[in-house]
Each structure stands twice: as structure tokens, then as C-alpha cells.
Design a protein around this nucleic acid. Structure first.
Lengths: 251, 251
DNA sequence: CGCGGTATTGACGTTCTTCAACACTAGTGG
DNA sequence: CCACTAGTGTTGAAGAACGTCAATACCGCG
């Protein structure tokens, strides 16, 4: 998966459109306008850096396939992983809008990604403000997730953090149409999971095996299956409110 | 400060306009349009709940005077404070756009706040998409700050957390035109500071006095003065990149 | 086959929390 | 004017959760 197919296909277009529609109601003209945004498709190998932290930036991305994560951190400190990205998620809108990326984005698996040119994005929302609202809501939800992650590392113990994260990823995977709702893929090492939860890889390991021993989850490679959802949600104090992107009153 | 002056004055208008201009270049028509947004001014007493978490919502707010903080948390868990708000900051754009507030906002001191009607906000950005961009960037910066807070509670020890927070609040206070850049106001208890940093009030106390004993800061009531900025920044591993809201290439 | 990265397990330290007291301040009501 | 109270700040000691260190097992890959 190293060759770069540089054509945007219908699947990619539909993936982005579906996401925007789930943020705000769009008429057919607005839907059609989305196709002008995506320029080309690029592939990144697992471990590759898609976006550099603090680098000047002129575009955003749509993750089409694969699993990526955002991280921040200077030389002096250990890195912190600040978000996970699934197929359908938008990457680095901050960079596209402000001209500087505020987080690094790393491909955890091989990733297929469509680019959104910043100029095109700005002139699109100039022409179709309602689309701008859909993108904006994407950012609002991202901020909401970040706040919940602060809660996770700030107030919960290792067990609760991992339980909560499992619930979140299961939920988001289901929303993205990946897995069956009970099973989801988290293709990262314990080391990275530790950097996301503020724990060491050793403690992640220990805690995950404990959750498994108590029949809350089962690990199968890098896939996780939730056995007892009710109990897991209770353990992690999970409430999906913060993940909801719909605008009840519509436009 | 319990009476509600329900008139929007020029100061309030200018505060909001200045903030939006620092996000995106605005022409005079766009600046003028901002005045249609603010409806009325409300006052909240210290401790009052301005926004309820999970409540249906039809408006956003501009903090005109005072100090507020955002928090999340269910009955079963201790609350986590996920952000501080100073004069000029926008509150609950998430609620205005999605119809549900994703965090509670509490007044730490008496606060004067202008309301932005959600309908008016949506139709304004429909008419002036460039203004929408300015609001959007506000959200992007908020998300960026939230990510840095994840870093704070996830990777740094008590000393670093408080040093970093002091640097952030000093920076933001200066940007907001409050204090002299070295001194800033943080009118909250150690308890609340602990809820923001993922520590206990006792540990906050201890750590703060240590920072003071080593001549990094001085506390004067609820004001903090930074004595040795270079050393404090080094301690907290502070880089202001994540706070920058300017779009270098403008529109 | 051998190598490097990852997972796993146990012993030992450190940071932070919890518990228990007490001091200081402001506000309240007598 | 003076208790009285409640909230906050301060200090010390004991305990728990999590990190660090060390060693071994596993597994895909060249």
C-alpha cells in the first residue's frame, strides 16, 4: 500500500458528504459542491507522519482508510496522544484555517487520505456558508472529545480510563460503519495506548488483562470485543452525549 | 452586581469585534454586521451556573467581565474543569450550533455576559461567511487549548502542570488586555485549581508554595505575579504556539 | 535462524492521595 | 461588638496507585 492512487473516487466523496450531512442538513447544491474540494488521494505507511506539529500548512485531510492519531509534545517531554482518527474523520482543520498545525498526526496503520486544499475550502464556505457550518460543527465535536479526554486523564484511574476509551472507540467505530458495534479495531501498541491515557505501557497491559479477566472485554490481536457493554460503560462512567454531532433543530 | 443591565454598550461590541478580527481579517461591512448579534447583557453572581451541561441551548455568550470556567462530570465522578474563560472569550458555541451544551460553564467571579442568539448567529454567517470563519477559528483555538490541557494532566507532574497553567493564564490575560503581562488574576480556590489540573487541593497548595519559595511566582490574594518567566516556562515546558489564533496568510 | 519490537510478569520506589488537625478570614446573627 | 460558623488555606504523617527497573517470553520479519 505504498503506491499513491491520485484519483478521488465516489467512495471518498460519499464518505465526506455523509459526515457533513450528519453535522448539518445540506441541500443538493451544497452536496454537489463538496466534490470540488477533494483534490487527490495519498497513501501513508504505518508510522508515517501525515501532519507535522507547528509546521506551516495549506490544507486539511479526510481519512479514507486506516487509523491515525494526533500527538503533541516537545523534545523535553514525553509525547501525549490527544486523539484517535477513524475513516471519515477530518484531519488538521486547524492547520488549514490558521496556517499552522497545532498537532502532529501519525498514521498508526497504512492510511489512505484525501487532501482538501485550504484555498478551496475557504472559497467553498464563502459560496456555501451552510457547508462552513458543517465543517465548524466537526471542530466543535472534536473539541468536545478533547474535553472528555481531559476528564479521562485528570479524574479517572487506569481501569476507568481504558474502559471509557474502549466505549468511545466502540461507539465511534460503529458510527463510522466499522465493525459490528461490539467489536472495534485499535491497531496501536500498549506504549501508544499509554501515551493516550497518561499511563505506562506496563500499566496499560496489566489493566487491560484485568478487564479481560473480569469478562468486560476480549482482546483478539489489535481488535477488542466488548463482552458486557453495560458493565463497561458503568466502569468507565461513559456517556455518549459528548460524541453527538446532530443539530436537533436542523437548519 | 446582581442587577441586569440589559443594554449592549459599545465596549461590549468592540470586545467581540476585536476578538473576531484577531481571528480573520474583516471588512467594514462585516464588522458592522457584528452589532446585530448581541441582544442583551446579563449578570451572574460568583458561583452561578451560566450554562448547564447537556441542556438544550439556543444561544452562545460573550464574556464581557469576570472569570468563568467550564466543567464536565457526572454524578458518579468528581468534576473536571476543562477550561478557563476571560473577558472576550466566547462561551458555548457548541450549544448554539448543535443545540446541546457539551460542558457546564460556571461563573468564578461576578460576571457580565452578552448573549448571542443562535438563530441570529446562523443567519449572520449565512450572510457573511467570512465572519463564520472568524467564529470557527475561535473553536479551533479552543480545541487546541484543550489538547494542551490533555498534555498537562496526562504527562506532567504537579509542579509542571501548575507552572504551565500559570504561563498560559499570564499569556491569555495579556492578550485580553488584563494585567500587565507579568501579573494575572486567577480568582479560584485551590480546590478548583485541583479539579483543573487533576490534583487535590492539598497538593496544589503544597506545589504552589514551592514555586513561590523558589522565586518563580508570588501569590497576592488571587493574583499571581510571575517573577522569573524564563524559568517558569522551562519548568512548565510552555510553548505559546497552541494559543496563536492569527491566520498568517489572511484571507 | 536470528533479530527487533512488543507483550508479560514481578519486585521495588516515588508521587500523589487520603486522613486528621489546626489556623485564618469573612460573613452572620445575636 | 463579639461569638459562631463555614469556607479556605496550611501542615504533617500514613497509605495507595502508579511508575521504574529488570528479566523473560512472544511474534512477525528479513
Amino acid at each position: 500500500m505504498t503506491e499513491a492512487p491520485d484519483m478521488v473516487d465516489n467512495d471518498a466523496l460519499e464518505l465526506l458528504t455523509r459526515r457533513l450531512v450528519s453535522n448539518a442538513a445540506l441541500n443538493s447544491a451544497e452536496r454537489a459542491a463538496v466534490s470540488a474540494l477533494m483534490r487527490e488521494v495519498e497513501c501513508f505507511e504505518a508510522g508515517a507522519c501525515i501532519v507535522q506539529h507547528g509546521a506551516p500548512c495549506r490544507r486539511a485531510w479526510v481519512l479514507l482508510e486506516g487509523f491515525a492519531y494526533g500527538q503533541i509534545g516537545s523534545r523535553h517531554s514525553r509525547r501525549q496522544i490527544v486523539g484517535f482518527y477513524l475513516a471519515g474523520d477530518l484531519l488538521d482543520l486547524h492547520g488549514a484555517l490558521t496556517g499552522l498545525s497545532s498537532e502532529a498526526v501519525i498514521a498508526a496503520t497504512d492510511c489512505k487520505i484525501a487532501t482538501l486544499d485550504a484555498e478551496a475550502l475557504v472559497s467553498l464556505i464563502e459560496a456555501k456558508p451552510n457547508l462552513g457550518r458543517a465543517f465548524w460543527i466537526e471542530t466543535l465535536v472534536e473539541a468536545s472529545i478533547a474535553r472528555e479526554w481531559i476528564m479521562n486523564v485528570g479524574q479517572r484511574n487506569a481501569r476507568q480510563r481504558l474502559a471509557h476509551l474502549c466505549c468511545e472507540m466502540a461507539w465511534r467505530s460503529r458510527e463510522a460503519g466499522l465493525g459490528d458495534g461490539r467489536t472495534f479495531s485499535m491497531p496501536i501498541t500498549h506504549e501508544q495506548l499509554g501515551d493516550a491515557t497518561g499511563l505506562t505501557s506496563l500499566h496499560v497491559n496489566h489493566t487491560l488483562r484485568k478487564l479481560e479477566a473480569q469478562d468486560l472485554i476480549v482482546q483478539d490481536g489489535h481488535a477488542i470485543r466488548i463482552i458486557d457493554e453495560a458493565r463497561l460503560r458503568a466502569e468507565g462512567d461513559f456517556e455518549e452525549l459528548y460524541l453527538c454531532r446532530s443539530a436537533p433543530r436542523s437548519m
